[in-house]
């Protein structure tokens, strides 16, 4: 469990980082928090020719929260975002989700943007970005481009980031007024990747009826599975929603696979249960915001 040989680069500026990445092409790999890359290297599942450590690049650790949402820089650690009051106020789902990401020591080192680029369909943060319709900003020597979540996650462990590109930040939009969010998951052990998990966002209208309801499901497809369930939930108050029908609707939308931890049938069942729990919590959070 020692990595194969690679060249190690530690650029001091963004320009330098992009130069090295451009030169490295497909053989380049970015090291930020290292919580996924280092195990992959040690198990010799990845053998990049060059590892580009961006930890010394200034200006990448920002967390900018505003009325429109939260922009998270490439070097912002999970823990920093989790603890940021501004981020929590602008988009509460960030903190709700981050508490489910692995363990505190991993969150102290791992980065939100790194988790997005790693694009594990069992991970929480890709689901959050997908649910909120956020975007990832990619920089290269050719300039910057903003890739929306719907196009960013292209497959298990595959993202739209191209060789030579560095994900410099991600943007998590805020929700309209009278909105609430929640994240529910079942993991085998505390902090493990979820067997199934659902992030939900609910918006209420002036009469406190559900006017928008969306879920993003993890571990049930090659990428986070986003579903708009407004039609089954609304427009009616949460108390009179036919939640069994919602669960059934969500179950119909996912195509889970079985693995050593859970059967496909259990994952599908669980996704329905967790969708209802997350939607109900999101609806009451939206109520709470109103009162």
């Amino acid at each position: 469990m020692k990595p194969p040989p690679f060249d190690y680069h530690r650029p001091a500026t963004l320009g330098e980082a992009l130069d090295v990445l451009a030169e490295a092409g497909p053989g380049g790999k970015v090291l930020a928090g290292g919580q996924s890359l280092i195990p992959l290297l040690n198990m010799r599942l990845a053998a990049p020719a060059r590892v580009v450590d961006v930890n010394r690049v200034p200006g990448l650790d920002g967390i900018e929260a505003g009325p429109s949402g939260v922009r998270v820089g490439a070097l912002a650690r999970h823990a920093a975002v989790e603890r940021s009051p501004g981020a929590a106020a602008a988009q509460p789902l960030l903190r709700q989700a981050l508490r489910l990401v692995a363990h505190p020591v991993i969150r102290n080192r791992g980065t939100v943007v790194g988790s997005l680029v790693h694009a594990d369909p069992a991970a929480e943060m890709p689901a959050v970005l997908a649910l909120l319709g956020g975007a990832v900003r990619l920089a290269s020597l050719d300039g910057e481009r903003e890739v929306p979540a719907a196009e960013f996650f292209t497959g298990p462990m595959e993202s739209a980031a191209r060789p030579g590109e560095l994900a410099v930040s991600a943007f998590f939009p805020a929700l309209p007024a009278r909105s609430g969010t929640a994240f529910h998951e079942v993991a085998r052990r505390h902090g493990d990747y979820a067997v199934a998990g659902v992030a939900a966002a609910v918006t209420l209208d002036d009469d406190l009826r559900i006017s928008a309801a969306r879920v993003a499901c993890v571990s049930v497809g090659p990428v986070p599975v986003v579903a708009d369930v407004t039609a089954v939930c609304g427009p009616r108050p949460a108390a009179s929603v036919a939640w069994d029908a919602v669960a059934a609707a969500v179950r119909d939308l996912v195509e889970p696979e079985g693995d050593i931890h859970a059967t496909a049938d259990y994952r599908r069942h669980l996704t329905g249960v967790l969708a209802v729990r997350a939607l109900r919590d999101a609806a009451s959070a939206a109520h709470g915001e109103e009162s």
Partner: peptide
């Protein structure tokens, strides 16, 4: 026995 086993 796992939760998935119990479900089955």
């Amino acid at each position: 026995i796992s939760p998935s086993d119990l479900h089955t």
